[in-house]
Design a protein around this nucleic acid. Structure first.
Lengths: 340, 340
DNA sequence: AAAATATTCGAAAACGATTTCGTATTTAAA
DNA sequence: TTTAAATACGAAATCGTTTTCGAATATTTT
């Protein structure tokens, strides 16, 4: 792999000093327009490409941003990254993307790889196993800008982008109640997750608000094994005091519910109504079509990127403010919560 | 952002020369075991993290691999990247991920950003608009290892990983014929794409093999606008000589077909049988469940990564061989092609 | 015309690692 | 005991930029 021409060689061709060429290319006021033109045209002619590592070393910036997500096979995260990229690419930033596969140990490894300046900032959504956050605190204290979205980490005083989890879950539960549900179950991944806590609160409050005493048996913590979850939900649906409504706090649990229902002689929405947080592209092609609470994923990504770009490109910016910014989700009612 | 301690500072603490410390950490034979121990323990104590850019500059490697895909919101590509990451992360490589959004101009921009050594290699699947490949040829000629998967570029003499597109399409079409289809349509994105050409060949040959003369009207080139495609397919289904079977060469066109069917009074599979290349996670939750040809996406990613790691880590490796490696897809028959 | 100020550029240091070359001390061979 | 070879480390160059400092020439001011 032959790298192209270097600044020094370019300077030699021009019979100029490297410093002059560097300044000319960076449009410094110290260089006359005449030489600037000469330098630029020669640079283009020889297809000069500055070495990013020399520049990074000198300037102590990497021009890249690390994005850490719990899983790739998930439209929500894909959309967020699209949103991030749409902003950052305009400013010459590159995206290093890592998946933790919902594994804290992997998350720690990834984070430790980012201690050395390889990325100028981190945008992340924590894994569902993450309760010990020392690795994140460590990174934060080194001064590396971190920004959370969706699954945030309250203990780190930085900016977080979420959706209105509480209200959305509240509204979703209310919708189920309005459709006649009496016993609503809440499906979640891990109680450690910020989103499940918030969504669970919304669920509980909606029940209480309707004068219904929540049954703890109906708040169900699932795993990452789809097969296990399907089994668990199937048993739930076959139990004598089965729920007649389900709020899935993440998409995959709604899908497991659909699979589980197939193994019973129940049907959606007649025997069981289902609503789910989901960013899948085809909720209306499911049978029945799925009522969803959809996050503005791409916008979340864009907002993350905007605040980050500001922090990284403008001089003397303060630390990312310790605040939680909420972008509202959208409830779309479909057949899975229909009364007929 | 305070970067950690440098090698020089570490050396000072140890009252050793930087060169010695460097060698000790790299386990050089020139350094005694005693000093190695001292150096390593001190490095751990002070949490020394080598600066990746100094190293990259000196060694002329980036330790990162660029992955270019046409879209993120697509399980197939997500799975491939998971596969790549599973191998490369073990070897200390980082993944720079770019999406072209099916836009050649974006693809060219991304590729031009990769001319300066920021990545040690490229793994990519070309955009559906890509017919002029000068930007890729350029990169190849600079000696940067490029590796294609799925949507390959025949003109670049390097290794390509695909699935058995021809055979899969042949078998898929044969299956439709066996289920009684008489007029089978082929849905594709762009004739420029290697996968559509191969899959189309398989489709045509299967028809001819069954003594059916292919109608060019039934080979339909779609766009990237889902709404347009749904409209197009709806019109097709409403035409007097409508097809009774559809082979979708990519997943999104099968989904558009499902949407289109909803707008007619036809039903799948009774009036129209559908089969599609697809890596979606829930083909069996569609209504009706979708018969799919599924690529071994993660394995493709892993194989790409393995050959690349070999090329990048072993000394004096030859160029990536100019060969096409095929990993077989799997046909899974579901309701959408059922006879009842 | 002399002095002060712009204007334009070059030399060299710096970023933080690796590596070539050189050298002092030990150890082994003659 | 002398010589040769092995061992263990240091000094300095190097990768390709940017930037500080310095200086020469040109321009303006007094």
């Amino acid at each position: 792999m032959k790298n192209g021409i270097s600044l020094k060689e370019l300077a030699a061709r021009l019979k100029l000093a490297p410093s002059t060429v560097s300044r000319a290319l960076n449009d410094s006021y110290e260089i006359s327009e005449a030489t600037k033109k000469k330098v630029i045209s020669m640079a283009e002619k020889l297809n000069y490409q500055p070495n990013p590592f020399a520049r990074s070393l000198r300037e102590n910036k990497s021009k890249s941003i690390a994005v850490i997500i719990p899983e790739r096979i998930n439209n929500f995260f894909a959309q967020v990254i699209d949103g991030i990229e749409s902003i950052t690419s305009e400013h010459g930033y590159h995206l290093l993307v890592y998946s933790t596969h919902e594994d804290v140990e992997k998350e720690k490894k990834i984070v430790s790889l980012l201690q050395n300046g390889r990325a100028d900032a981190i945008v992340m959504s924590v894994s569902s196993q993450t309760n010990d956050i020392s690795h994140l605190k460590n990174l934060y204290e080194r001064g590396l800008p971190i920004l959370f979205f969706d699954r945030v980490c309250a203990e780190i005083p930085t900016t977080k982008f979420i959706t209105n989890d509480y209200e959305s879950a509240f509204e979703g539960t209310k919708h189920l109640l309005q459709q006649g549900c009496k016993r609503i179950a809440f499906l979640m991944l891990s109680m450690e997750l910020s989103i499940t806590r918030e969504r669970h609160r919304g669920y509980l409050d909606a029940l209480k608000n309707a004068g219904i005493e929540p049954e703890s048996r109906l708040s169900i913590c699932c795993s990452h094994q789809d097969a296990e979850n399907i089994q668990l939900i199937t048993e739930l649906l076959n139990s004598k005091s089965r729920p007649d409504g389900i709020l899935a706090s993440v998409e995959k649990l709604a899908l497991s519910t659909y699979h589980a229902v197939k193994k019973t002689d129940l049907s959606i929405p007649d025997d069981l109504k289902v609503i789910s947080f989901s960013n899948m592209s085809i909720p209306n092609l499911l049978n029945p079509s799925l009522t969803t609470i959809t996050q503005p994923a791409e916008a979340i990504g864009q907002e993350c990127a905007k605040i980050l770009i500001k922090k990284l490109t403008k001089p003397r910016q303060p630390d990312l403010p310790n605040e939680v910014i909420s972008l509202p989700s959208k409830l779309t009612i479909r057949e899975s919560t229909l009364v007929r």
